[in-house]
């Protein structure tokens, strides 16, 4: 897995002429399949279920893009990537889009030559410890051993946090979430730190989830979102507006269940434009008129996807918080569809 990505990088940079050139849309259409870089397995965000179907909050966005572009949310292949391999996989053309709890930062945007096209989850980094450790604040972790995933922003934030607070720690740098959880549960580290959403997801899968607490400190901003290669603006716009269409759908009360009904009866001009009943918005991006309708029908609007995968009714139990619509005091806001 590891080796193949590296060899892939070398091979891709040395042998294939012009992979990074524009035209991801054409490639995907010609292939008849979207290739989406996902988690190796993070319950609620992206993981195969018991039947091997990928499900999750991030996965649903990939499916919406596949529905918009190819008209079928099942025409997606999910490629598991670790924190370390994900950007190489995207840059080398191994995947068309990366939706994997990836934080939008300045250097990833500019140095790695990637484009973050939206924020589908506003997050921050937290710490999880076992309850019986008797720790109630991250600042009490002086001298603790902390498990951290390699190749992440969280690794850098962790160093900054401990330095800023003038306390020390021992890092245990692990490769993926499952190894981090194993070491944390085995007591090889006192604390596990990653995005707070990831901690909630990890805790939900632990057999004794009530024995673990997530500490109150959120030590960073982690705007997580879908990533595409730099330079293919059309493809970036497709992903961005697919995501926005899910937000607008929630704002306008369009759900997976009522979308046909709305399409038949609505008089709202923005909704009519978005669902392809009026004008030719899809064509501007090289898509069918019904592209965004397909995207919404796939797994419902943003709110539905949130509640079905990570919302308060699920074991992960995340509140909407910052991720509520702007109309409900959150940060999720889509520009007008016109």
């Amino acid at each position: 897995m590891k080796k193949s990505v590296f060899l892939g990088t070398l091979a891709a940079t040395t042998m294939i002429a012009g992979v990074a050139a524009a035209g991801t849309l054409d490639d995907v259409k010609a292939r008849g399949e979207l290739i989406c870089g996902s988690n190796t397995g993070l319950t609620g965000f992206g993981a195969p279920d018991a039947n091997g179907n990928w499900v999750g909050f991030d996965v649903a966005l990939c499916r919406a893009v596949a529905a918009a572009v190819l008209g079928d949310q099942n025409k997606v292949k999910f490629v598991p990537t670790t924190g370390e391999t994900r950007f190489t996989a995207l840059a080398s053309g191994e995947v068309d889009i990366l939706v994997r709890n990836s934080t939008w930062t300045y250097s990833r945007d500019n140095d790695l030559k990637l484009d973050f096209v939206a924020v589908n989850y506003y997050d921050g980094q937290g710490f999880m410890v076992k309850k019986d450790l008797g720790v109630s604040s991250a600042k009490e972790l002086d001298g603790a051993t902390v498990c951290i995933q390699t190749g992440t922003t969280t690794e850098l934030n962790l160093a900054d946090f401990f330095k800023f607070n003038n306390i020390s720690y021992t890092p245990v740098t692990v490769q993926d979430d499952s190894e981090a959880q194993r070491q944390y549960l085995a007591g090889a580290c006192d604390a596990y730190t990653t995005d707070a959403s990831g901690l909630a997801a990890a805790r939900a899968t632990m057999a004794d989830s009530e024995n673990h607490v997530i500490l109150p400190e959120i030590i960073s901003k982690e705007p997580l979102g879908p990533v595409v290669r730099h330079g293919d603006n059309q493809w970036g716009d497709i992903v961005r507006w697919t995501f926005f269409s899910l937000l607008i759908a929630e704002e306008k009360g369009i759900t997976k269940a009522n979308i046909e009904e709305v399409a038949a009866s609505t008089t709202d001009p923005e909704v009519r434009r978005m669902l392809g009943l009026e004008g030719n918005m899809g064509a501007m991006l090289g898509l069918d008129a019904g592209a965004f309708k397909n995207a919404i029908s796939a797994n419902g609007n943003y709110g539905e996807i949130f509640e079905a995968n990570i919302g308060s009714a699920t074991p992960i139990g995340l509140a909407r918080g910052l991720n509520a619509l702007w109309t409900q005091g959150g940060l999720q806001y889509a520009p007008p569809f016109r």
Partner: peptide, 28 residues
């Protein structure tokens, strides 16, 4: 060694540095 969280040359230069800087070719 990276499999057991041992940060050797592969883990530092070929792992974290490669990933944080995006300089795959140079690091490799």
């Amino acid at each position: 060694g990276i499999a057991v969280s041992y940060l050797d040359l592969r883990g530092t230069l070929g792992g974290i540095t490669l990933n944080q800087t995006g300089r795959e070719l140079e690091c490799m």
